[in-house]
Every structure is written in structure tokens, then in C-alpha cells.
């Protein structure tokens, strides 16, 4: 196999070969509400490209093998942070079901199984790109690295629109605000932070504000309804939209065929391999659960 450089960021660059490892938990931080930040160390981590994800065990490996919950959970690679020698990984997640609850109880020194990096990353920027990133709920975890990379696009701009039910559900806002030259706006459904309403309303307002459609691109990750609406809003302004889908997965590397999403050209695309990043036009939205 060809060895590839760490963290490719340009289009068409090969992505690193995935590995399977026991990741050592460094810490699990409470981010308020049900949100958690887990930091793990992976021996030999090959780097990743923005938009890629890992399959992480539903809770730490125990002395006696545990079979329930059985499946690993797909999680976006939020970012790399400085580690000793190779970088450590950070993942932001929300405790919802049993797997994420067990993961939130992991303690420093515990080992979680991990396979990654997986999936096809975000495409390269268009020249002078005006990137508008839309993150709904935990979807923001998939776009942090992208926001970071887009700040390096010459003559470009980056704005990030956050959407959540309530202020307590927002994750990662401080990290995005700490990035140079990233404009952050927030919408909450209950109005507890930022403007009151849906993040797609924020998007509609941002695009109505006069934007150079030849240089603008929308990136959306979140609930299916939100991504679909974001794509519609972008389209009415003649702007392309790229989405990152979150279908249920069993393997994450293209063998179970469980993650298939219907495509507008007919047939299905594997979200774990052809995705999770898709051009919104390529997705047959009415067929997504």
C-alpha cells in the first residue's frame, strides 16, 4: 500500500489508509447538557482530511468482552490536538442512546476500539471561496476542520451558522469563535441564544444579503430535514451545496451495505465510502429516512 502524507487538504489528494486500533482515552469533558468532548490517543494515527470519520466502540473495552450494545458508533473527527509525537484526536458527541452513554462514562486510561479515518472528505475549495457552513445539532462536529482549512483560502471568507433546539444543545461554539476570520451566527429554536428560529432561516437571510454566487458554496451537516432545506435555499440563489450525511452504519468501510443512501441518478451510494460528503444534488432526499 502507498504511504500517504498526513492530513491532505487539497482535492484529489489520496486520503490516509485507515487503521484499526485500541485508542487510549485521555479525558472525557462535560460540555454542558448532554454534550461531551472525548480526547483519545491512537498509536500510529495516519492523519485525516476534513469530513472524515471514525467508527468508535460503544463504550470502553472491558475485561470481559461485551456484546451489547454491539455496533461501533460513527463519529466525525472533530480535530487533531497536539499529542506526544503524533497528534491526539478530539471527538464531540451528544449522549443519546446506550452507546454514547457508555462512551461518556469512559475514564482516562480506558481503551476504546477505533477504526479510521474513513470516508471521502470534503472537496477542495473553489478559488476565492465564500464558504457558508451550516451545522445543526451534532452536525457541527463534522465541519470544524473544514472551517479551519477554509480560513486559508486566499481572498475567501468563512461563515458558520449554528442551529440547535436550545442554548444548552450548542456544541463547539467557542472553538469556532476562536478561529481567525470566521464569522459565527447562532439560531436556537427556543430563542435562548442567538436569533430565534431555524438555522436554515439564518442561511436564507445570509444569502439574501447579496452574495457572489460564483464563489459561494454552502456546506451543511445535521438532521436530514435541515440539510435538505439548506440545499433548497442554496439552490434558489444558484449556489451549490455540499452535505455530510449521517446514516446508520454497521461497518463504516463499505462491506455491510447498510448505510446506503438513495441517489438522484438512481441506485444507492454508500455513505461510509462514497460519502459521508455528497453534493446535495446527487442525493434523492425523498428516499432518506
Amino acid at each position: 500500500m502507498v504511504k500517504t502524507p498526513r492530513s491532505p487538504s487539497g482535492p484529489g489528494e489520496p486520503v490516509p489508509e485507515p487503521l484499526r486500533a485500541g485508542a487510549t482515552v485521555l479525558e472525557v469533558l462535560d460540555e454542558g447538557g448532554a454534550n461531551r468532548r472525548i480526547r483519545v490517543r491512537v498509536e500510529g494515527w495516519p492523519g485525516f482530511a476534513a469530513g472524515q470519520f471514525v467508527m468508535i466502540g460503544a463504550g470502553p473495552v472491558m475485561a470481559a468482552p461485551r456484546t451489547d450494545p454491539l455496533l461501533p458508533r460513527p463519529m466525525a473527527i472533530y480535530r487533531e490536538i497536539d499529542g506526544s509525537g503524533s497528534p491526539d484526536l478530539e471527538i464531540l458527541f451528544k449522549v443519546g442512546g446506550r452507546g454514547t452513554a457508555l462512551l461518556s462514562e469512559a475514564r482516562a486510561g480506558d481503551v476504546v476500539s477505533l477504526v479510521g479515518p474513513l470516508g471521502t472528505p470534503f472537496p477542495g475549495a473553489i478559488p476565492g471561496e465564500q464558504a457558508i457552513l451550516v451545522g445543526g445539532g451534532t452536525g457541527v462536529a463534522s465541519i470544524y476542520q473544514l472551517a479551519r482549512e477554509r480560513t486559508r483560502v486566499r481572498d475567501g471568507s468563512v461563515s458558520v451558522l449554528f442551529g440547535a433546539r436550545s442554548a444548552g444543545d450548542l456544541m463547539g461554539v467557542d472553538d469556532f469563535e476562536a478561529l481567525d476570520a470566521v464569522a459565527v451566527s447562532i439560531a436556537t429554536e427556543d430563542g435562548s441564544r442567538g436569533s430565534s428560529g431555524l438555522v436554515t432561516d439564518l442561511l436564507a437571510a445570509a444569502l439574501a444579503d447579496g452574495i457572489d454566487s460564483s464563489r459561494a458554496r454552502v456546506y451543511a451537516c445535521g438532521p436530514v430535514g435541515m440539510m435538505r432545506r439548506a440545499a433548497e435555499v442554496a439552490k434558489t440563489h444558484g449556489i451549490g451545496c455540499v452535505v455530510s450525511l449521517e446514516n446508520h452504519m454497521a461497518c463504516g468501510f463499505g462491506v455491510c451495505l447498510g448505510c446506503a443512501a438513495p441517489l438522484s441518478a438512481g441506485g444507492f451510494g454508500l455513505v461510509c465510502r462514497e460519502g459521508p460528503v455528497f453534493d446535495a444534488e446527487a442525493v434523492a432526499w425523498e428516499g432518506l429516512p
Binding site: T67, D68, P69, L70, L71, N247, H248, M249, A250, C256, L257, G258, C259, A260, A261, P262, G267, F268, G287, L288, P289
Partner: peptide, 23 residues
Amino acid sequence: RFGNPPPRIAEAPSALLNAISLE
């Protein structure tokens, strides 16, 4: 062949439930 529409998989106690069909 193409398989079934999603959702095609779900978790069950110590198990996986799948309906991929002929893909």
C-alpha cells in the same frame, strides 16, 4: 442488483438486524 431502501440495518440486543437484499 440494487438492494432495499434505507433504513437497512438496526441494532438489536447483542445482534444486528439487516435487510440488504440482493445488492
